[in-house]
Design a protein around this nucleic acid. Structure first.
Lengths: 347, 347
DNA sequence: CTGAAAGCGCTTACAG
DNA sequence: CTGAAAGCGCTTACAG
């Protein structure tokens, strides 16, 4: 009882604890080939209903489950997709992960989660994920580092590969969202409230994601003025520091757009720490929604983008779209969720 | 170029784009068996250094990577571990995931992430994860539902299985942390500040995790008084609602211990919404640390527990410990991190 | 309508 | 010191 682990041991016929096709065949009194065909619903098959029933019954009674590795080897399909992220604790990544998981579950596949830094660290981790035939496709949610695009490009030589939340490369397709429009939408909200001195707190400088959101911010502002722009990194500490830097510049913004909700949380903390009241003295709006937005204090106004749907579509594209798919998910469009962190400027 | 996908096609010898053992053997002028033995570092081997070099060179030049499914089939080892969680967006789970990933990466394995609800939903998802031989061990971070323990027990009949962050069952081992002590530590901090009317905001009622933290709270309080205890669920909305309910009871707590940081965030929002100042009128302390604690407003006092280490140890135990391991990770011990959300009571 | 056989890419006793 | 061969559990032309 301590050890009913059941590894498929045993020679021919699997007398180990996990039953194989051979066991089912024996019990049903037919050949393994036939069992395989029946269980896989081979449509060219016209088996007698009775035989068919016997096989199904035998499989059920033995609790037969096909061996994944054997199928993978034979079919040259792993039945799994890999997803690379930088930071699982980022709620944005969490939602993408869940979307991907949903899509995989409904297509009978399984998710392999990997860490971008580990893959970049030069060891065997990259080959293990990409080269061993463990996955049928790779999804890469980058962090804006050079190695992100380099490794995705490398993977794409072996496997269908898709960048997630980023624009495509020459060799690698991508799914992304309407980040420019989301940023515009956020800034327009602030301008409608009467704000003019609006800061932009970006993520990693030069990263596609930060660039695109900055572009939307600039479009809405109608200016290239750098005095209100700070870009550092994607975590809360960076948001905190970026907000501090923006304030230290003396440009006296009355509002800021933080490029995502994690940065926004850090920015909020930096403002509060300086005794700046939000939203009375400073409005804060961010992109992406998550539990932490509604429960921040004050609750954060955000622009929601369909992250979960992006995760789902990414799986579908990487598995079914042969070429170099390029998709900007525009439905549903960016949606402004007004909460308590934005208000008209002080006077 | 559009399609350098390289699936291992081709009959005998793999003339598909991905090289196999046979290709390496041919290039080095030896047999596949020898290549396999050399590449796997067979110590009983005493090959001529020259041959050995040739083989290694051939493998390098062809960029040979062994086929995972073939190895898995042959060795009856998947080289992967499954991890089941309820909610990826929970920062606590994120840290466990990262710990597990670390341990797996260093032992050359890979992480399969699954969603508890999906597995419980009766479809084929459970068999796909547990039955197909895709993983060598299963880690289950439950949510306190009956199906969590039921499914973990079921999995344990097929696979080495370990509950994470929970006490063991009769049939299933576990790793957990010093939750009682952490709760005690939090309450003692509050009492030292002078608090006496201290609330407890728990997670899902009856869940092992909530029970153990409540036990620590009671030990430190020296009472079984239920008036200060509210248990609902593990998400921020529940924390918000639970805080609301506690306040509505009119017991006038001057401090609360929230069973985790997500609940604590919700509780903070509920208090702020009612105009209750933290920490002046209400101290809030939570268990577990994460980026959102340091950047909450006010920054949350927390008790840190070694979540990441638990993730690591879970992997080691499920892979290497044959029986029904039971570990309470006590090193490092719970550590109080005092931030701005706790202070002496008003008077 | 069903079976026997080959083969997916590996590893490992077993010979030599 | 190295090779030939069997076999892991499947799927699928190919016979009959």
């Amino acid at each position: 009882m301590a050890d009913g682990r059941g590894s498929r041991t045993g020679t021919s016929g699997g007398r180990g604890s996990t039953p194989g096709l051979a066991d089912v065949a024996r019990r049903a009194g037919v050949s393994v080939g036939l069992v395989s065909r029946i269980l896989n619903g081979d449509s060219t098959l016209r088996t007698r209903a009775e035989t068919r029933e016997q096989v199904l019954a035998a499989a059920r009674e033995l609790n037969y489950v096909p061996h994944g590795a054997a199928r993978a080897l034979r079919l040259a399909r792993a039945g799994a997709v890999g997803l690379v992220v930088h930071d699982v604790s980022n709620p944005i990544h969490a939602e993408i992960i869940e979307g991907a998981q949903e899509a995989l579950a409904s297509s009978g596949q399984v998710l392999l989660l990997a860490n971008a830094r580990e893959l970049a660290d030069g060891g065997r981790a990259f080959d293990r994920l990409v080269g061993e035939g463990r996955i049928d496709g790779l999804l890469w949610q980058g962090g804006g580092f050079d190695f992100d695009t380099a490794l995705a490009a490398r993977a794409s030589r072996t496997l269908p590969t898709l960048l997630v939340n980023s624009r495509p490369l020459a060799e690698v397709g991508s799914v992304r969202l309407q980040d420019e429009q989301a940023a515009e939408c956020a800034v327009e909200h602030l301008r409608e409230l009467g704000h003019e001195r609006i800061g932009f707190l970006g993520g990693r400088p030069g990263s596609d994601l930060s660039e695109r959101r900055k572009a939307g911010y600039r479009t809405a502002m109608g200016t290239e003025d750098e005095a209100f722009v700070v870009e550092q990194e994607w975590d809360a500490t960076a948001g905190y520091a970026a907000m501090g830097e923006l304030l230290a510049r003396g440009t006296q913004p009355t509002a800021v757009l933080a490029a995502n909700i994690v940065l926004g949380t850090g920015a909020l903390a930096a403002a509060r720490e300086r005794g700046i009241r939000v939203p009375e003295e400073l409005s804060v709006v961010t992109i992406h929604d998550a539990w932490s937005a509604a429960h921040a204090w004050p609750p954060l106004t955000t622009v929601r983008l369909p992250l979960r749907a992006m995760g789902r579509r990414a799986v579908e594209l990487v598995l079914d779209e042969p070429g170099r798919p390029e998709l900007v998910l525009a439905d549903p469009p960016p949606e402004l969720l007004v909460r308590a962190s934005t208000a008209p400027p002080a006077d």
